[in-house]
Design a binder for these strands. Structure first.
Lengths: 247, 247
DNA sequence: AAAGGCAGTTGACGCAGATCAATTTTGACC
DNA sequence: GGTCAAAATTGATCTGCGTCAACTGCCTTT
C-alpha cells in the first residue's frame, strides 16, 4: 500500500510516493557501493529505520538550491540532474546522480544546487538531524562519506578542465566516454550508451547549446564514429572517440 | 640554521627549505581556521611533531598530478596555483590555495592536480601515513577535513557555472569579487585587490586567453569601474563590478 | 487518423573571443 | 644606468560556436 504526498506544491508538480516499510538494507541494490557499504550487519539493521524510500516522477524536484537542508538522499534507482541557475535563467548542470550517489551534504545548512529526476527515481531519504546523530558515533561512516566527497571533488576538477579548455567535439567525446564509464560499474561494459537525459541537459552539462550538441552528434555519425540510436548513442569506433576526447 | 634540499631534480627548479624545529602550532598564523582548528591544546602538542615546515620558492612545485601521494600540506603563507594539464599543454587552473588551505586529499593514492607556488610559500607538511594514523583516533579532525572538502566542492560547482555559462566580462568581474572575498577573511576588507598571479594564471583559471583578460581589464578601466595598479586591481565602483558579475 | 506539441535536427548568419603579430612595460641582473 | 628577457598590452583578423529560424518526426490526446 502506498501513500501519496505532494512535496512542495509551490514547485513543479513533483509527486513523491513514500513506502514506509517492507524494505531491507541487506538486500538493497546499492548496498555494496553506496554510503552504507561501510556499515556492518548490526548497524545496517539500525540504519534501516533511519531512511525511508521515496519516489520522484520524471522531472520531479527533490530539492532546490538555497533550500534549507532537511534531508539527505541516497539514490537507489534512476538518474537525476544536479544543477545551478543564474538569475537570468542560464543553467549549468554540475553533475548527474546515479544509483549509489549520496546527495545533500553541505556546510551552510542550505543546498548548493538543485536536484531533479530525469527518469523515475527511487531514493533512500534520511532526516538530516537523525542521520547526523547516527554518524556521530560511527567514524567509519564519516570516513565513507568523506571518501565520496573527495571522489566527487576529483570529478568536479576534471569537469572544470572540460568546461574551460576543451572544444565542442572534445566535450562530446569526453562526455560519451565518461558516461559510459559511469554506467559500466552499474550495468557492465557496452559500446551502446543509453542517454536518458535530453539534448538540453547534455548542452547544459557541457557548457554548449542544444544546436551544437545536435550538430556534433550528427557530424560524428556521418564520420562513422558513432550511431545515434533511440535513447542513446552507439560507439561504432570507441578508439576514435577516445582520440577525439584528447585525454 | 636551515637545511637545503632540492625536491625532485627532474622538475622545475624548486628549492625547498626545511626548518626542523622551533615552531609551535599554538602560535601558528592559521591555527584558528585551518584543519588544526578542530584540535584541543593537548592534541595540538602531539600534532606539532607530525608536521614540519617547508618553503617553496616562487614557481616551485609542491607536487604534480599523478604523483603518488606521500604528503599532505597545510598552507601557512603565500599563494599556490592548483592546476591540471591536457596532453597538448592546455592548462586549467582548478583553484588557488591560500593560508589555511589543506592540500593532498585523494582517494586513488595519487594527486589529482599539480600544485606550485605563485609567490614564496610556507607550508606545514605531513607524512601521509603518520597523518592517517593520527586521524584514525580523532573523528573531530576527520569531520573538519570533511567540512573543508565539502566547502571546496561547493566552490568547484560555482566555478563550473562560471566556466560553462558566463561571458568574459562576467568571468573577470566574478573573479575579482571572489578573490577579494577570499582575501577578506585573511586580510580584512579592501577595495584594492592584490593579484599575485600572472595574467596567464588568471586566463587559465577563467577559461580565457591572456589577451582577453588583458583587454577586459583595460575595458573596465576605461569605463572607470576599476583601476589597474601595480600588482593588482583597485575596485573604483564595486557595485558596478557586482552588477557585471551577474549574480 | 487528425491535431497539437515538444524534442531534435538542420541551415544561414553573426559575434565573442581566439589567434596571430607587433609594441610597450616591467623587472632582474650586471 | 644599460641590457636583456619575460609579462602585459594593443591591434588586426579569423573562426568556433551561438543565435535565429525553419523544418521534421515522434508522441499524446481526442
Amino acid at each position: 500500500m502506498r501513500g501519496q504526498l505532494a512535496l512542495g506544491a509551490w514547485m513543479k508538480p513533483s509527486v513523491v510516493t513514500i513506502e514506509p516499510n517492507g524494505h531491507f538494507c541487506s538486500d538493497c541494490a546499492v548496498r555494496d557501493f553506496a554510503v552504507c557499504s561501510s556499515l556492518d550487519p548490526a548497524e545496517l539493521r539500525e540504519f534501516e529505520h533511519l531512511g525511508r524510500r521515496v519516489h520522484f516522477a520524471a522531472s520531479g524536484t527533490a530539492f532546490s538550491e538555497e533550500d534549507i537542508t532537511t534531508s539527505f538522499y541516497n539514490v537507489l534507482e534512476g538518474v537525476m540532474r544536479l544543477y545551478k541557475l543564474l538569475p537570468d535563467g542560464r543553467r549549468q548542470i554540475v553533475g548527474f546522480a546515479l544509483p549509489g550517489d549520496f546527495l545533500g551534504m553541505n556546510v551552510s545548512g542550505r543546498h548548493n544546487f538543485s536536484a531533479d529526476a530525469i527518469v523515475a527515481v527511487t531514493a533512500c531519504q534520511f532526516a538530516k538531524a537523525a542521520f547526523g546523530r547516527f554518524i556521530e558515533a560511527r567514524p567509519h561512516l564519516l570516513r565513507r562519506i568523506n571518501e565520496l566527497a573527495i571522489r566527487e571533488l576529483s570529478h568536479a576538477r576534471d569537469h572544470m578542465v572540460l568546461l574551460g579548455r576543451r572544444s565542442a567535439d572534445e566535450k562530446i567525446a569526453a562526455f560519451l566516454l565518461g558516461w559510459r564509464e559511469r554506467l559500466f560499474s552499474l550495468k557492465g561494459s557496452s559500446d551502446t550508451v543509453p542517454l536518458p537525459m535530453s539534448r538540453q541537459d547534455i548542452a547544459d552539462y557541457l557548457g554548449l547549446t542544444i544546436e551544437t550538441v545536435s550538430r556534433t552528434f550528427t557530424k560524428l555519425e556521418r564520420r562513422g564514429v558513432i550511431e545515434i540510436i533511440h535513447g542513446g548513442i552507439s560507439l561504432l569506433d570507441p578508439a576514435q572517440v577516445e582520440a577525439l576526447a584528447a585525454a
